[in-house]
Design a protein around this nucleic acid. Structure first.
Lengths: 106, 106
DNA sequence: TTGACATAAAACCAAATGGTTTCGTATTAT
DNA sequence: ATAATACGAAACCATTTGGTTTTATGTCAA
């Protein structure tokens, strides 16, 4: 059985500003935990927890290299967000949304 | 001075699945609180709180009509999310998105 | 006017969240 | 072999979150 008890999804994962910053860092390049945490005013443990959450949401993945664990971005999972967003793009001031409005409120 | 102490931003607002459902409902049409809450297995008060949060993130706005408060979608605020996302589209291995990124952020 | 309706506001609560410190275990360097 | 490095795991803690119930207020209908 796969671990279907996924505690964190993409939406929750990106809700935290620290985690969004982590994603930005990893967008530049693969990094070990210590180096990531050196960019933040909190403990390495705290960052490790954030990385676990991001990992659970499959936004990053980590591999062990020697004594360090290197994380890298896994941007594919953001497509879920993009798909969710795409539904609402119909409302962004294009003529279709105006038409929709007129039709629905005649 | 504007109320700069904004407790909830867009990212936090959409992190909760109930709030995302509320947004979907309001995408269809303007609705009063009671009617919104009738779609959920929780109290009207709970939904009212979610609406406050969505309102703080400016994803919805409410106007008083008689004794009811009607909420409607304010989709413009989702652009913040779209903008955030657009940065990562450069990683979604198609050349068009890279071009799009370059053009839009020159 | 009286009662039902729609909401607001506040007190309360359990669980989740975001951080800490402590301790244990590999791994590398000297 | 020893010490320093990099991490994992666990215990702990304060605050936030997401819900409840209760009470109060304004509005509409009979």
């Amino acid at each position: 059985m796969s671990s279907l008890a996924q505690k964190y999804d993409v939406f929750q994962a990106i809700a935290d500003p620290t985690r969004r910053e982590v994603l930005r860092l990893l967008a530049e390049k693969e990094l070990p935990i210590s180096e990531i945490s050196s960019h933040f005013p909190m403990s390495r443990t705290a960052i490790a927890k954030h990385l676990h959450i991001l990992s659970e949401a499959e936004l990053v993945c980590g591999k062990k290299v020697g004594r360090e664990k290197r994380y890298r971005l896994q941007p594919e999972s953001l497509k879920e967000l993009k798909d969710w967003l795409s539904y609402y793009e119909q409302f962004w001031n294009n003529k279709l949304s105006i038409l929709k409005y007129v039709v629905e409120n005649d």
